[in-house]
């Protein structure tokens, strides 16, 4: 059902989970993506944990349901409940925080083990506007890691500047869809 299937004018709907440690900016990322807003007084939504985005990819209507997940350490064991039946996962880390990158690596392993290649992964290094605080060699590691796993995409973003918030679109064979940079 969630996988869409079928042809014609059907609307595809996909479930995408946002995984990552607390404070890496998952919420800001998703708010920037869905509402193009960052830490703004004009944010009208009461919550940023469940958001939907309508897309049109090569003439096909796609509904993305983006599920924010609780990222704090104490909630780590709940991961499987969240990512069950999801079509895609966005793994977010903070480029200034090496631990958060380690977490992402663990997530990749866990997801591949639990869901195999059913799920489309996208690794996002957030907060590129804090470039100078970046830990050396982290990005390179990320890309190497992901190439080895295959079927993934790696992006660096900044919710503050609105750089390259990339959406993850499993059904549209190519892993990455359109960009919506603003800034």
């Amino acid at each position: 059902m969630a996988a869409g299937g079928g042809a014609g004018n059907k609307t595809y709907s996909f479930k995408v989970v946002l995984l990552g440690e607390g404070c890496v900016g998952k919420t800001s990322l998703v708010l920037r993506y869905c509402e193009n807003k960052f830490n703004d007084k004009h944010i009208t939504t009461l919550q940023a944990s469940f958001l939907t985005k309508k897309l049109n990819i090569t003439g096909k209507r796609v509904n993305l349901a983006i599920w924010d997940t609780a990222g704090q350490e104490r909630f780590h064991a709940l991961g499987p409940i969240y990512y069950r039946d999801s079509n895609g996962a966005i793994l977010v880390y903070d480029i200034t925080d090496e631990d958060s990158f380690q977490k992402v690596k663990n997530w990749v392993k866990e997801l591949r083990k639990m869901l195999g290649n059913e799920i489309c992964l996208c690794i996002v290094g957030n907060k590129v506007d804090l470039e100078k605080e970046r830990h050396d060699g982290m990005m390179e590691t990320a890309q190497a890691e992901e190439r080895a796993k295959g079927n993934g995409a790696s992006q660096s973003t900044s919710s503050r500047r609105g750089v390259q918030i990339v959406d993850d679109e499993p059904q549209a064979a190519t892993a990455a869809g359109g960009c919506c940079s603003s800034a």
Binding site: Q47, A70, F75
Partner: peptide, 11 residues
């Protein structure tokens, strides 16, 4: 004042 995130919501 900010929109609630999943951690706040779950707790």
């Amino acid at each position: 004042s900010e929109p609630a995130n999943a951690d706040d919501f779950l707790s």
